[in-house]
């Protein structure tokens, strides 16, 4: 059953002349790991904002079509309700953290929704353990590394126990190892905790292997929406709307020239297996 259902969605920000979303149809099932990508300005962040009600509640504009998030319509559901179902992690964790301790930051949203102390403590403990943040629980978020900060931001959202996690370029300013640890943590949450993860990113190489769906947008439209293997089999290598991972380029060129490998490996491990068996 789909957890997010979008039909004919069009959006234009107030004061702007350009349509940012043009007739978007998208269904996402529970437990999926979905990447929405495309060039700057393609509308991917706007689409995420429509999924947790920031649009139209915080950003107003012309809105057509329908969005359903766990059968709720974000247009007439208050953001504090939607955000307990679909939590959003922003690009820069510093915009999301402000407390004097990691624990305090995680507990903040829980205080806001009026949980009792016992339940708050329980949830804080759970997410600290989940993202292996126990050792830094008393530290100030400001003295943490970029990767740790982003993990704390994710933990603070997870504490709300949303079914859906939305992340807007969460690793764009992180170094590769921190980015990988965030992405691996998300993949684990998706697989083991049945969390639905929807992420926007420019860099695909670390993500591709985990995706159930790769959605590529260009100028406000969805141009690809399929399993990454199917997208990469079709997309033109000259197409520069997304950075095609080097391994995928290699596979495509080898297949074209030598008909090999027969399968379509998405990762180095799969490639090695296909070659050596």
């Amino acid at each position: 059953m789909s957890i997010i259902e979008i039909r004919g969605l069009c959006f234009r920000y107030s004061g702007s002349e350009e349509m940012v979303l043009r007739n978007i149809d998208l269904s996402i099932d529970e437990g999926e790991f979905v990447l929405i990508t495309g060039p700057t300005g393609c509308g991917k962040s706007t689409l995420l904002r429509c999924m947790n009600g920031l649009i139209p509640h915080l950003y107003s504009g012309d809105y057509k079509g329908s969005v359903k998030v766990m059968n709720l319509n974000p247009v007439n559901t208050p953001p504090y309700i939607i955000s307990q179902h679909a939590g959003m992690v922003l690009q820069n964790p510093e915009n999301q953290l402000f407390s004097l301790s990691v624990e305090g930051d995680i507990a903040f949203a829980l205080e806001n929704i009026g949980l009792n102390r016992e339940e708050m403590v329980k949830r804080v403990e759970t997410v600290l353990k989940l993202l292996r943040l126990e050792e830094i629980r008393k530290r100030s978020p400001y003295e943490l590394s970029g990767g740790q900060k982003q993990k704390v931001a994710i933990a603070s959202i997870l504490a709300l126990q949303p079914k859906i996690l939305l992340l807007d370029e969460p690793t764009s300013s992180l170094d590769p190892r921190s980015a990988k640890s965030i992405i691996d943590a998300l993949a684990w949450l998706c697989k083991d905790k049945k969390l639905t993860v929807i992420i926007t990113e420019h860099r695909l190489d670390l993500l591709v292997q985990y995706l159930s769906k790769l959605v590529i947008m260009d100028s406000g439209k969805i141009v690809y929406n399929d399993h990454p293997r199917n997208v990469f089999e079709k997309i033109s290598l000259e197409d520069t709307i997304i950075p095609i991972p080097k391994l995928i380029q290699l596979v495509r060129l080898l297949k074209k020239e030598f008909g090999f490998p027969q399968s379509f490996p998405l990762t180095v491990e799969e490639f090695v297996d296909s070659l050596i068996g």
């Binding site: 190892r177 080097k246 391994l247 180095v268 491990e269 090695v272």
Partner: peptide, 14 residues
């Protein structure tokens, strides 16, 4: 804290 680029990683595994 850097990772091997994909092509060097693949060639190393091969």
């Amino acid at each position: 804290s850097l990772l091997l680029p994909q092509i060097p990683l693949l060639m190393k595994r091969l």
